[in-house]
Design a protein around this nucleic acid. Sequence first.
DNA 1: AATGAATGAGCCTTCATTCAT
DNA 2: GATGAATGAAGGCTCATTCAT
Lengths: 197, 197, 197, 197
Amino acid sequence: MARTTEGDGTPVPQRLLAAATRLFAERGYDRTSVQEIVEAAGVTKGALYHYFGSKDDLLHEIYGRVLRLQQERLDAFADADAPVEQRLRDAAADVVVTTLEHLDDATIFFRSMHQLSPEKHKQVRVERRRYHERFRALIEEGQRTGVFSSRTPADLVVDYHFGSVHHLSTWYRPEGPLSGREVADHLADLLLRALRP
Amino acid sequence: MARTTEGDGTPVPQRLLAAATRLFAERGYDRTSVQEIVEAAGVTKGALYHYFGSKDDLLHEIYGRVLRLQQERLDAFADADAPVEQRLRDAAADVVVTTLEHLDDATIFFRSMHQLSPEKHKQVRVERRRYHERFRALIEEGQRTGVFSSRTPADLVVDYHFGSVHHLSTWYRPEGPLSGREVADHLADLLLRALRP
Amino acid sequence: MARTTEGDGTPVPQRLLAAATRLFAERGYDRTSVQEIVEAAGVTKGALYHYFGSKDDLLHEIYGRVLRLQQERLDAFADADAPVEQRLRDAAADVVVTTLEHLDDATIFFRSMHQLSPEKHKQVRVERRRYHERFRALIEEGQRTGVFSSRTPADLVVDYHFGSVHHLSTWYRPEGPLSGREVADHLADLLLRALRP
Amino acid sequence: MARTTEGDGTPVPQRLLAAATRLFAERGYDRTSVQEIVEAAGVTKGALYHYFGSKDDLLHEIYGRVLRLQQERLDAFADADAPVEQRLRDAAADVVVTTLEHLDDATIFFRSMHQLSPEKHKQVRVERRRYHERFRALIEEGQRTGVFSSRTPADLVVDYHFGSVHHLSTWYRPEGPLSGREVADHLADLLLRALRP
DNA sequence: AATGAATGAGCCTTCATTCAT
DNA sequence: GATGAATGAAGGCTCATTCAT
């Protein structure tokens, strides 16, 4: 057990993932060398390739982590026992809060997807699609029951909202005037107001 | 004339820019080699370095082209003689149409900004900021005159809308069910509805 | 007994040797990784290094096995109580049959010798030399007694024949038209006919 | 023109090929690094990859050179205006002389074929086959006309002879007692004597 | 205006071997 | 007897850029 840690108590794979996440977000996947990752994690290249099959695998692992987390949270909010407008508002706000809490992951998520190998790229798209559809179902439910306007196709509404989430990593700064919660409430509010009949 | 063209009537620099735009959008800036660009343009490396100082210069040129176009169009719509809600709706819809008409440019724009050299990156951010402020001014004007709700800070509204524009290159397909114009009208509509008092 | 076998009744060292033989013949010594060998044998690296000092040792062991077998058989045929032309014919045919029965060993033998460490390489050459000399002695005996022509130096005749043995792994296919025995008889026949006075 | 040479008058590609040939013969293809080749040729890696697509290409080029030379010579001897036994003897001796004159090429040829990429390997086998068939045709001609014995299938006779050629690089030393011409005459003699009716 | 040979630094990955357990 | 995490060195290859012509 002593051999899996060094300097701190974190196991090597986690240390590598953490280093990679920070560096990928900071300078992009292609501009981060494996050498830089292992130096940041305090191990050697051999150790990295002992745990991960390739640099691409590291990226895929980061994607997996984000996707699992977001899907879980969306499911929880969408399954709640509350009126649809409340469930949508909560889910829409939560994805913003979660994204801001893991801004590095989000930066990577939206910027590096096309740098995955074709097959892993496809796999991520499939999981992403499931997430999209769950979100869309909420909007369609509100449209069917008349609490949301039906002027705009639900798909487009989902993309409208997720565009803004995607964009967060471009402009949001934790030290800015708005807290993550405030931004989340504002963006959820804009969504719900746009859907008023 | 004979020396600047070859094969078709387009001058070499334009041919290079066109090839670079297509390739950067298709596989990303870092994954496109200078060799691939010159082959696609039907010239040699020497020719490229005759007209452009570096690979980075090509990217910067593409940015310049997009920025000039978008600023011009925004200025035209914002300066029009019409009620503010009309001017905002037109501007919001136009940036969507223009983005969809130059989807390669847009893909590059939102994905490769951080691959510019620091100084060029800064320059682009400055011009981008001017664009953002012009757009924000429209929203603030409506908020001051009471035609738009003031619940949400104008800055956040701008980012909300541009998030969706940014996102277009991720999901929009010309062969899909909606024309560019339809998407544009829907997105402008969502924005205006979200701003209703 | 439980600790030296697993899955089947073969002891671990033999399993490793068998896996290594197959893989070395299939893709060459340098292109076979220790990892592949242990996987094929169903053990771990630790186990391999417990029984063998190095990858090179495995190769050396394979050589030893082949050398011992061939020397034994040659000695048996050469020591037989029969006319020299019969003894040579039998020995020449037997080495072909034996080689074809252990084609993987033969492939490795002729292709990977220079991949042994210098000192092991030398050792193998010494044993090989003994084999060569025993074979040459048969030919010289026939030349002295006049049953074989003396036109060609005996050394050269040995190399002529072993060239064809060496070559077998290049072209012989068990599913081809000739059985091993038939090939052996033909090659021995060619040798004896070439030696006719 | 001055830029393609350095130190001597030989163009870079030839220098690389010569260095590679020597090193591949000396220590084997897999054990020769690209770095060693370029150092021996006095250029940088970039230069190598400017002229050759891969390390494998270098090997393929060496094969091409050998194949072309041998085919040409065989064709010349086989097409000569002489009795078939003379033509076979000349061809059989010539391939020995030529092989001994290019012993490095020959060493590589027989030892490294399976290290070519599958597709190049196949291509070489096809060309090799053509050579084999030309040689076999000579033997069949003699068998048909009764000057050679028909006891042994012609294919096998070809492999018998080429086994000995293949084997030359294992034992022949220029400083040894026999000149190349002497070895060639002896080996051709053995072949012709084996074929006597 | 344009060529293309050559550079040099860096990239991702592989691998035989060691060693604490 | 056996594990498997970790090392450290090397390997093949790519690429933006330069420069003599």
